[in-house]
Simulated assay, not measured.
Amino acid sequence: MPASSAAKTALRDQVLAGRRRRSLLALGEDARATAEHLLATPEVRRAATVAAYVSIGGEPGTSFLLDALAATGRRVLLPRLLADGDLDWGTWRGDGSLVRARMGLLEPVDSLGVDAIATADVVLVPGLAVSATGMRLGRGGGSYDRALARVPVGTWTCVLLGDDEVGLDVPSEPHDRAVLAAATPSGITRF
């Protein structure tokens, strides 16, 4: 195993252990604060289409954010995990437009194709950590690195994290894609 892969695995284990220690109350409060910061950014305020995701487990919560985006008339795209690990995209129309999928995911019922992410004005992605230069650490499947490769240059990309998951030493490999910002309960960090 290359040194960067081993370092990524160690960092993933460390972050996931920290997430397991957070209470449901803290997760909910953090989700609301993160959403409020995101909704106040000029990028999100002027976006017509936002690509986001449905959080699961100890991930920074997205339900308040998704509801707020929809309430303000934005088109919201959500991922569908394909068998090869790539991401298809569908439109979110409320919780009734989601179905249970493998790995505990909730996904939209419609399919717009893998290139639909290129139509988003803002792309919000999950992650486990981000470096001071915007290098994002995901879960290791490469799904979001592939999706981010389809996002036009200049599109605002932002990872949702806990406060203690920003500015970490994230090992990177040639296929890894950086983001332009991180959203946490304390605010927005731009890279």
Rank of each mutant, 00 (worst) to 15 (best):
R100Y: 01
R100L: 01
R102G: 15
M103E: 05
M103T: 00
G104P: 04
G104I: 01
G104M: 03
L105Q: 01
E107Q: 15
E107N: 03
P108H: 07
P108W: 03
V109W: 00
V109T: 13
S111N: 01
L112S: 09
G113W: 06
G113D: 02
V114A: 14
D115Y: 02
I117C: 06
I117G: 07
I117V: 15
I117Q: 10
A118E: 03
T119K: 02
T119A: 11
A120T: 10
A120C: 06
D121N: 05
D121F: 09
V122T: 13
L124W: 11
L124H: 11
V125A: 15
V125K: 06
P126V: 13
P126W: 15
L128G: 07
L128A: 07
A129Q: 06
A132R: 11
A132S: 15
A132I: 08
A132G: 04
T133N: 04
G134F: 09
M135I: 11
M135G: 04
M135D: 15
M135C: 13
R136F: 15
R136T: 15
R136Q: 12
L137T: 11
L137Y: 14
G138D: 13
G138R: 10
G138N: 14
G138E: 14
R139I: 06
R139V: 06
G141I: 12
G142M: 11
G142E: 11
G142T: 14
Y144W: 15
